[in-house]
């Protein structure tokens, strides 16, 4: 991997329409540097979009930004979305029925990434997602 990508770094994304794309541009570069193939790069980008728009839409944060962190490990890429909202009960997952309109974000993230975890409290929510390197062509 080239030396110009740090092992761990953070972006501040303002809560505003389409700003999730700023994060996906960085995600794309990082994932490509890590030799993820194009389909896996797209999967990481979509999972990140879902995580960020959930933070935008549901966190109820008074602070108008979310933090996105990338950590490059030997075996995996770790992507974190941190908001400063009210938190939620992450253990109660919505059931997904065919042709239901909403409630697919978490299902998508879990299908696209190898690991998805929530750490949530009334001070905010930290979503930690991991994608393993070798599994992805």
């Amino acid at each position: 991997m080239s030396a110009n990508v740090p092992k761990r770094f953070e972006l501040e994304i303002p809560i505003a329409c389409d700003k999730e794309l700023e994060a996906t541009k960085v995600a794309e570069r990082v994932a490509q540097e890590m030799q993820f193939g194009p389909d896996c790069v797209a999967e990481i980008k979509l999972a990140l979009i879902e995580g960020i728009i959930n933070a935008f839409e549901h966190s109820g944060s008074a602070i108008q930004k979310v933090l996105v962190e990338f950590a490059i490990h030997d075996e995996e890429l770790e992507v974190v979305v941190q908001d400063f909202g009210q938190g939620f009960d992450a253990s109660s997952k919505p059931n997904v029925r065919p042709l239901q309109r909403r409630g697919y974000g978490r299902v998508l993230m879990e299908s696209l990434m190898d690991e998805v975890k929530y750490f949530t409290s009334p001070q905010g929510t930290r979503l930690v997602m991991k994608k393993r390197r070798p599994k992805c062509a």
């Binding site: 979509l46 042709l99 239901q100 909403r102 974000g105």
Partner: peptide, 17 residues
Amino acid sequence: TQLVNSIGVSILIEMIE
């Protein structure tokens, strides 16, 4: 189209219905 997010898909579902 490179990506469709979940809200985008929900609108496509509306069209299917």
